[in-house]
Simulated assay, not measured.
Amino acid sequence: MSTTDTFPDESAAPSRRDFIHVLAAAAAIGGAGAVAWPLIDQLNPGADTLAFSSVEFDLSKVALGQEVTILWRKQPVFIRHRTAAEIAAAVADDDASMRDPATDASRHKPGHAEWLILIGVCTHLGCVPLFKQGRYDGWFCPCHGSVYDTAGRIRSGPAPKNLYLPDYVFETPTRIRIG
């Protein structure tokens, strides 16, 4: 054998010590994950919060011209089965001067003009307005005098915005899911 011949370097081959280092690193990462998971998981919403995140309601319980109030996320939600006269009055006022302009069509789901679903909290100071009160036969907040029409649009008084619309979908023609 000549002096220029080289043998493979034994230090490049994996050794028992390298295996122990990889095993220790994997155990450390697994341990860190096991400690971090409960801390991250506790940031998720609780079961009681998730239970209030959505609510289903059967619309067949509401007669024409009637309003029902249900709770969603600890807030009242008005579900109104509007008559043809109420819808016509709301559509007729689409061009009226309003603080927070909105058409009647923008206040309900397409094809469901008879159903008006609103969060029943006055946008002024958070009171609950009363139905069939006030000048426009809509809602009236007795605390400070805000008046809403039959589409939940602010018409007079100190409230700055229309009654808010919750996120909802029609699951069937007679059942909605809010949230």
Rank of each mutant, 00 (worst) to 15 (best):
A36H: 07
W37E: 11
W37G: 12
P38R: 01
I40F: 12
D41G: 04
Q42P: 00
Q42W: 05
P45F: 05
P45S: 06
A47I: 09
A47M: 13
D48T: 11
T49L: 09
T49R: 03
L50M: 15
L50T: 11
S54A: 09
E56Y: 05
F57Y: 15
F57W: 04
S60E: 13
K61E: 14
V62Y: 04
V62P: 01
V62H: 12
A63C: 02
A63Y: 01
A63S: 09
V68R: 08
V68L: 06
V68A: 13
I70R: 11
I70N: 08
I70S: 08
W72H: 13
R73S: 13
Q75N: 13
Q75W: 05
F78K: 05
I79S: 03
R80G: 00
H81S: 03
H81D: 09
R82S: 06
A89Q: 04
A89D: 14
A89R: 03
A89L: 10
A90L: 06
V91S: 05
V91W: 11
V91P: 00
D93N: 00
D94N: 10
D95M: 13
A96L: 06
S97H: 06
S97Y: 03
M98Q: 11
R99Q: 01
R99K: 15
D100H: 03
D100Y: 04
P101Y: 01
P101L: 02
A105R: 15
S106L: 04
S106Q: 07
H108M: 04
